[in-house]
C-alpha cells in the first residue's frame, strides 16, 4: 500500500511538471507573442505577415495543436513507465 501510494505521488508530480512547462508555452505564444508583445513583434516580418499579427491569427493555433500532441506523447510514456497503461 505504501509503495503504491508513493508511486502515485511520483506520477502526479511529474504530470504537474509537464503541465507547468506546456502551459507556459501556451501562455507565451498566445498572450505573450500574440497580445502583449504583438506591437513589438510586428516590426519583424514573416513573408507577407507582420510577426505579432501572424502569432495572433496563425502561429499560436499551430502551437496549440502541437502542445496537445506532445502532452499525449509524454503522458503515454509516463503511463507505461509507471505501469498505469490500460
Amino acid at each position: 500500500m505504501e509503495e503504491k501510494q508513493q508511486r502515485a505521488t511520483a506520477y502526479w508530480k511529474i504530470n504537474l511538471r509537464y503541465l507547468l512547462i506546456l502551459l507556459s508555452i501556451w501562455f507565451a505564444v498566445s498572450y505573450g507573442a500574440g497580445i502583449l508583445l504583438a506591437d513589438w513583434l510586428n516590426s519583424f516580418r514573416l513573408g507577407g505577415f507582420q510577426l505579432g499579427f501572424w502569432f495572433a491569427q496563425q502561429g499560436s493555433i499551430y502551437v496549440f495543436v502541437i502542445l496537445i500532441f506532445v502532452y499525449v506523447f509524454l503522458m503515454n510514456r509516463l503511463d507505461r513507465k509507471f505501469g498505469y497503461r490500460e
Binding site: 503541465l19 502551459l23 501556451w26 499579427f53 499560436s60 496549440f64 502542445l67
Partner: peptide
C-alpha cells in the same frame, strides 16, 4: 467578424482554440 475587425478578431481565433489546450491538459483525462 475578422474581415471587419482585423487584428481584434484574433480574440476569437486564439480564444476558441486555446481553450482546447486547457481542456486536454487539465480536464478531459
Amino acid at each position: 467578424i475578422i474581415a471587419f475587425a482585423g487584428y481584434d478578431g484574433s480574440v476569437y481565433l486564439m480564444g476558441w482554440t486555446g481553450g482546447y489546450v486547457l481542456l486536454a491538459l487539465l480536464l478531459a483525462p
